[in-house]
Structures are given as C-alpha cells and as structure tokens.
Nucleic acid binder design. Sequence first.
DNA 1: CTGAAAGCGCTTACAG
DNA 2: CTGAAAGCGCTTACAG
Lengths: 314, 314
Amino acid sequence: MVNGTSHTRMKESTRTRVLQAMQELGYQPNRTARSLRLNQTDMIAMILNKIDNPVYGPLRHGVYEAAAEHGATVLLGDAETMRSGSQFLTRLLSQGTVDGILIRGEGLLDDDVMAELRSHPKPILILEHALDHPWIDVDDRRAGEIATRFLVNLSHRHIVFVGGSGYLSQQRYLGYQQAMDAAGLTPAPHLATGFGEQAGADGLRQAMQAATAPTAIVVNNIMSAVGVLAAARDLGIAIPDQLSVVGIHDVDLMQHLRPAVTAVRMPMYQLGRAGVEALYDLIAGRPSAGGVITDPEPELVIRDSATALTRVRD
Amino acid sequence: MVNGTSHTRMKESTRTRVLQAMQELGYQPNRTARSLRLNQTDMIAMILNKIDNPVYGPLRHGVYEAAAEHGATVLLGDAETMRSGSQFLTRLLSQGTVDGILIRGEGLLDDDVMAELRSHPKPILILEHALDHPWIDVDDRRAGEIATRFLVNLSHRHIVFVGGSGYLSQQRYLGYQQAMDAAGLTPAPHLATGFGEQAGADGLRQAMQAATAPTAIVVNNIMSAVGVLAAARDLGIAIPDQLSVVGIHDVDLMQHLRPAVTAVRMPMYQLGRAGVEALYDLIAGRPSAGGVITDPEPELVIRDSATALTRVRD
DNA sequence: CTGAAAGCGCTTACAG
DNA sequence: CTGAAAGCGCTTACAG
C-alpha cells in the first residue's frame, strides 16, 4: 500500500494508522531500490553547451516543469564538462543513471563523446537537427528571416549577419539569405565570429571594414548584441541612427540595455516542454513528435535599436 | 574484478580477455545497484535561488569540478521549483537520491521547505550564514566595505547603497556602514529594492529623490547595475561624471557594458570548491571547515563607472 | 483476495 | 586465496 495500490484490504482504521505512522516516522521510500527493481530512475539528463547563456532560462523551466509532470528529475550538465572519460559522461553512460537524454550540443561535443552517447541504451533526443537521430528545435531559419525582413521593411539595403558558428547559426544565416534574396538584395557573407559579447564586438568591427558600411546588422547570438552596442559606442557609431541592430533570441537583459535591443523571441519554454514530451515518447517506444516547433512562431519584439533608414549613404 | 579489486587471481591472459570483452560489449556497471548496496549514490544536490544569475557560473564550475574529484555528479535545482510537495523536493527527500545537499537559499525557501530539508538524513551545507546549520560563504560584509571605501577614497561624501534584500544584502550593507563610519560619513538607509535589472533602476530613482542627491552608489546585486546604467541614461545622469557606480559581484557582462562597470569580484569558484569539500567532510563525519572564505579576498576590479569627485555639488 | 517469496545488479563478509 | 551466497529495499508475479 506504500505506493498507493489497494492491494491489501484492511480495516480503514488500520490503513489510516499505518499511513499516519509513515508520516510521523518520516518514512520516505528508497528511490534507489525502486529504480533498481523497475529499471527506471525517473531522471533525465539535459546537456547544454553553454549553460550560462540566459536564453536557456526558459528552456530549463520548460524542461523542469514537463519532467516533473512525468515524475522525473533533471540532471543538468554542461557540454564543457563532458570530455571523453569525464565523471559526468561516465556516470551518464552507466546503466541505471538516467531514463533518457536531451542534448543541445551544437557541434561542441566531439565525435568521441557523441559516439559514446550514441551507444547509450536509453533514448537520446537532440535539441537541434541531427542527421541520424530524433530531434526537435525552434525555427532558427525563420528567425533569421524575420529579423532580416524587418530591417528590409525599414528600407535598409546594406544588412550584414554577424556572430555564431555551427549548425544553428547556419540556419539563421539561411533565413537571412532568403529575406535578402526575396528583397532583391545581395546577402553579405556570414561573419561567424562565435558566441558571447566579444564575438559581437569583433563582428561589428569586421563589418564596418567593408567597402560599403552596413546600415543594419542582424546579430546571431543575443549576448553578442551587448558587444555590438559596446563596440558601436567605442567606434562612435550611434544606434539606431547610424546603425540598426536586431538580435536573434530574446532575454530580459535586452530591455534593460540602452538602447533597448529589438530582438526575435524564440519559444524556448515550449521547446523545453516539447523536448521532454518527445523524449518520453521515445522512452515509451511511441513514435516521437519531433521536428520544428511552429507554435508559437518566433516573434519580433520591437524596442529601440532599429529604426527606419532615412539618410541615404553613398 | 569489475570494480578494479584484485580479488581473483587468474592468468594474465584471462584477465585481459575478460576486460577486453567488457569493453567490446560496452559493459557499464549499473549505478543503481551499486548505490543500493553501498547506500551511497555519488550524487549531491545544489540548490540555488535564482539559477539564472550569472554570478553562479563560477560557483557551479567549482562545485562540478570538486564533485567530480569526489566521483560525484551534481543535481542542480532552483529554489523556485522547490515548493513544498514539489517533485524535486520529494525526490530530494527520498532516501537514496543524494549523498548531501548544498543550498544557497537566501531566505527564499519558506519555513515548511526548510523544515522538510532539515529532516533529511543526509548532510546539508548552507552557502551563507545559518544559525543552526553548518555553513560557508564568501565575505559579503567585506565586499560592501571595499566598494564603499573605494568611493570614499575618490572623495565621494554622499554615497548610497542600493538593491537586494535578505541576509547577504544586509551583510554587504553592514560593510557599507562600517566604511562610511570609518570615514566619518553618515550612512544612508538601505534602499533594498530587490534583485535584477529593474531593482537597480528603481533603486536609482529612489536614491535621486533624496534631499541631497548622491554622487556615488554601491549596487548590491550585480545585475541591478545594468538597471542603474539604464535609469541613469533615461534620467540624463552621466556615469561616471555625475554619478559613480560600483557593483558587488562581478560577471563578464560588466566589462561589455558602456561604461564598463567597476565591481568587487567575489571568489565564487573557490566557494563552490570549498563548499563541496566541507560537505564531504560532513558526509564522512569529519569536522567541517566552514566559515568565511578569506582566500582569495574580494577584489576590486576597476573599470570606467566610478571616478573621483571633482565638482562640488551643493 | 492476500501473504510470502523471488529477483533487480551490485558488493562484501564468509565458508571452503 | 577464491568461489558461492547473502542482502541492500523495493515491486510484482505467484501460490495459497
């Protein structure tokens, strides 16, 4: 009766007395024994590449919430700590640690680690497109397109795409290209300077060296937007008057910068929830509803860092 | 021999053949069975109040690293998800989930939850001073003192202390008071507006309403510094010319803001490592080396947001 | 319907 | 020195 089944019939008074005793003595079932018996730990792992990135906040909430609904706890790991042979990886690969794994590795897990993970007996779901694995993701291509089209509609003609590297960045750049093409404009090459604040600053400096300086910039990694603002200030470029900036992904911080940064908000919370559901489909052997999350769509949040092009530059 | 002991004597060739077979078949020991037998899971929990706060980055690194050295994995939880009766808490309280718990709750865990946690059979270490529990922390009082003294030395006389709430903030305010007292200045009341960007903006607005406006401000919560910068811009207050700003705690972001923010760096990485060591002392029944971490000391990182007071305001 | 027994995969104390 | 057996605390199939 401890686990709630009504296996035993007993006097109601006895039942309540037992339950009361359980409570008084603070009885807590031993999860380990249960896990061993059921071959199921009610834990899932979530592996992120840069845990500190604030875009993961809502993702994590979604994952924790949905996991809780499945009675599961989340083991959070950073790809950085997952070198081959690392404690975390060994643990993860051991049987009886975790019922399934959610990975957003973005190419940062090297081939050795991926091979080890793929040998894992429990299901793995990739939070980004992977060739030979179930996956789920937000619509990165569309985010690039939305950001770019917004700038095109503001009459910008010289728009560059800055920051990032790896698969997701390529998707967003693809969206940028599409929007540029659709407007009859020539896409600039992808300035893939990486992630974080410094990458944004580097990207802007590179962009400004082009023969015709851009009037607008799509920033791939949202923290890079901070670096773009800083570099613009340092270079004496006024935002948005001389340069419009739109970021991809949105975080609280953006509304507190000056100027507040216009950004494309991605449904990261929903990605988290859907990722857990898809993972549990796999765990249960059901067909998994993966693919691109289209509801809600990426959404443009208009703030102060982008404005219509009024002056014509020559 | 599977766990490395040389219990069995056998031909060397046999031994290697077995080990090889283990590798080829991808044998991984079952952690759950091991945990059940040993009554030890090689997992510790770390509970933070606002997981997203970037000041936790280095703390997490320290904890993960030190835990790995003890052969342990970290279960990371947010105090927010730890309502009484929540999945995470139930899980944590179950026997056989975790060998020990590290909490930085800062008063955000309500009494019910704390009572439940205290009934936990495994050791708990608080990452901040707690009356009736082993604890360890960085030197918050000293950080407040360092920030304030720096401003005093820059000839500021009207210095306010803004942001935060709860025990840690009080410690820092205490340090502020000490530095003000030592300089023969009157401490302003603690403007405890809370955490995050908005709290900083609110704090600055309140501070500027005082009869004599401050020329310098110590910002308790580092993300609040972002809000202080934004509000200053919105109010037309030039930083650092009209207002000097020093933050407590330091994160990468601060050097990428404009102006870059002068801040007191706290040894969070070391706190993480020391916390794990102290927790394992408790687990082993050894006396625990808790208390305030004094090596390294909080360190002032001078950037551009604070400058010497030149103009005298009346 | 219900109680007693088997077994999950380990580790270790014990018998041979 | 080494092999076989017991037992960690659960859950569930099975016998009564």
